[in-house]
């Protein structure tokens, strides 16, 4: 197998991220020349800078934060469960978040919660939902040692929550249903600056803490007994990793809705160009890869040259699914 140098791949990903960031903020329903974009970045007068600071920069920054958080969350879960199929959407985290948001938005009139609706309460409901499912999964993981069995439990939780959600959809009013459906489609364009600051604090803290956990993460690949024999405090590591994963994925789902595929696929795409299991290299690469991919998906979702915008989730899955299938066929196997 050919070797790619880690620093070269990281440089390539950083450059790609920069290029896509500029491309992303220069595209939109109003065409602004790149020169004007660069000028508007450093000024706060004129229509161009208003469009940039009000709409495009928040969206592009949200893409970067959400992409890196979801991809890193996926990597952490794959390592934690030692399972290549693990990811926020597979293990039912996002469906837990969806259930709580659905309860808030659509059952509000029954539960008397209708008065607290608003973007922040949706965020809170999504975080609580994701955390609840994650704690449930971790609790079950203490009894079920087999990772495949755990994955099936995750899928069953997803199925159960989805059916509750569909009952709620069936019985709810058109207005509430629409609010919920739009949230479900995933969006990086509805965050304001104060939400971005909250998201950024959570994501940056999560990424920073995960970088201090590389020893425990690498140790997890060998399993608990070996890790203990190498002096790694695996119980503590597991708790910290569960917390930061839940926090990051919960925050992104809260503000952007359940964004599919990124968490599961990016770690595998990165391992395809950078075949390593060392989290010292994997973590920064996966983080950059996730941000790059979500920026790219958002560019495509804007349908360059038109005023139409497609739902983000349609794009992530539409691009993602074929890539993963191709990758599995090419590599014939897939590993953590």
């Amino acid at each position: 197998m050919k070797k790619s140098s880690p620093s070269l791949v990281l440089l390539f990903l950083t450059t790609g991220l920069g290029v896509l960031f500029l491309t992303n903020i220069s595209l939109g329903s109003v065409s602004i020349p790149i020169k004007e974009i660069l000028r508007a970045l450093f000024s706060d007068t004129g229509t161009a800078s208003e469009i940039l600071w009000q709409f495009r920069l928040p969206k592009a920054l949200t893409c970067i934060l959400a992409g890196s958080a979801l991809a890193t969350g996926g990597l952490l879960m794959q390592t934690l469960f030692r399972n290549p199929m693990a990811g926020p959407d597979v293990l039912g985290l996002t469906s837990g978040a969806s259930l709580f948001v659905a309860l808030l938005l659509m059952a509000g009139q029954y539960s008397g919660l209708a008065f607290i609706q608003g973007p922040w309460s949706v965020a809170l409901a999504a975080s609580l939902g994701g955390a609840t499912v994650f704690i449930l999964i971790i609790g079950i993981a203490r009894y079920v040692q087999d990772n495949t069995a755990l994955l099936i439990v995750g899928l069953m939780i997803s199925a159960a929550t989805s059916s509750v959600v569909s009952v709620l959809q069936f019985t709810s009013q058109a207005n509430d249903l629409q609010t919920f459906m739009i949230w479900m489609l995933g969006s990086v364009g509805s965050t304001n600056w104060s939400e971005i600051i909250v998201l950024a604090l959570i994501v940056v803290a999560g990424l920073a803490i995960s970088m201090t956990m590389i020893k425990a993460l690498n140790g997890m690949l060998l399993g608990e007994s070996y890790a203990v024999s190498l002096g790694i405090n695996i119980k503590q590591g597991r708790i910290i990793i569960v917390l930061i994963t839940g926090m990051m994925v919960g925050a992104v789902t809260a503000f952007c809705g359940p964004i599919a595929f990124v968490g599961l696929a990016v770690p595998h795409l990165v391992r395809l160009i950078l075949p390593t299991t060392n989290h010292k290299t994997l973590l920064p690469a996966v983080c950059l890869g996730g941000a790059t991919l979500l920026l790219l998906c958002d560019i495509l979702a804007q349908l360059p040259g038109s005023t139409q915008v497609l739902p983000l989730n349609a794009i992530t899955s539409l691009i993602g699914a074929p890539i993963v299938i191709w990758m599995v066929i090419k590599a014939k196997r897939i590993s953590v």
Partner: peptide, 17 residues
């Protein structure tokens, strides 16, 4: 153990952890 992509050297490096 997991990590099929791990190199022999990476595995031996664990001994130094």
């Amino acid at each position: 153990i997991s990590g099929g992509l791990m190199t022999v050297r990476d595995l031996v490096t664990y001994g130094r952890y």
